[in-house]
Design a protein around this nucleic acid. Structure first.
Lengths: 138, 138
DNA sequence: ATCTTATGTAACTTATGATGTTTCTTAAGG
DNA sequence: CCTTAAGAAACATCATAAGTTACATAAGAT
């Protein structure tokens, strides 16, 4: 299945924005991400809506951080980007009255919910300044 | 993103095969899953290759369990179906030499690997006879 | 032997959502 | 007024599970 690489891309962008300390245009970010400026604006605008970056039009404009890196976690960015599930596994809903289907879905969902909770907790523990400093795994 | 519901569907099928105690045709399973027999064969054949079910052609033929439910785990079926990742999140590989990209990917991958290990462990703990008996979450 | 029933399989279409692209509008500084 | 930037609409592309069509193959029934 096609992967959603927006989290990876946006984290990459945010740390660069911090290091550059000046407005960066969508065109420049697009070059950095090997994509095009419309994709950058589309994704960055989700972060702007949540107050993590701000955008300025016209000469000297572009994108800047609206919060310091240590106040932003992976979870913040993940939540800004996606309302959809973390997993490629889906449940079926073919029979509302089949106890076997219910048991199967319950068993799978039980595990996935536990795993999702773990991911969200871990994402919440990592602030972006740790990425700038060179992240070392647990 | 489109979900992969094959695990849910196949578990459902396997428990039904156990309860029916007789060969069930792809047409019958397709009715059960609200799909068509070719999709059933395509997916079931992955389980046949791993020895969890067997298929017989001709009159009275169809699919039967090749192992008792208590010898099959969710992990067994999951592994039979998918070589692809469990997560919708993907990493980027746009710059091999950017330390920030490396740190970002490492941070994300670290979390996802921990979560995947958890899922696989939990899947390995659940045998299919537990689903037949009415699964109760942990 | 032939017919019927079933799986096996190849080839193609569909659906979904991130990604990519084109084009135009709007805002702000020079 | 020109240039530079984001904002936004509309459409194309890509990958993959799912769906579909068509035909081949095997095994029991008659």
């Amino acid at each position: 299945m096609r992967k959603d690489s927006r989290l990876s891309r946006m984290l990459h962008v945010l740390v660069h924005l911090h290091q550059l300390q000046q407005a960066v245009t969508s065109d420049q970010l697009a070059l950095m991400l090997h994509t095009n400026p419309v994709v950058v604006r589309r994704t960055m605008s989700l972060l702007r809506e949540q107050g993590y970056v701000s955008a300025v039009k016209g000469h000297g404009g572009g994108w800047t951080l609206a919060k310091p890196l240590h106040e932003i976690t992976l979870l913040d960015i993940h939540r800004s980007l996606s309302e959809s599930s973390l997993f490629t596994i889906g449940l079926t809903d073919e029979h509302n009255n089949c106890p076997i289907e219910k048991a199967v879905n319950l068993a799978i969902d039980d595990v996935l919910q536990e795993a999702e909770a773990l991911v969200l907790q871990r994402f919440g523990e990592v602030t972006l300044d740790k990425l700038a400093a060179g992240y070392t795994p647990r």
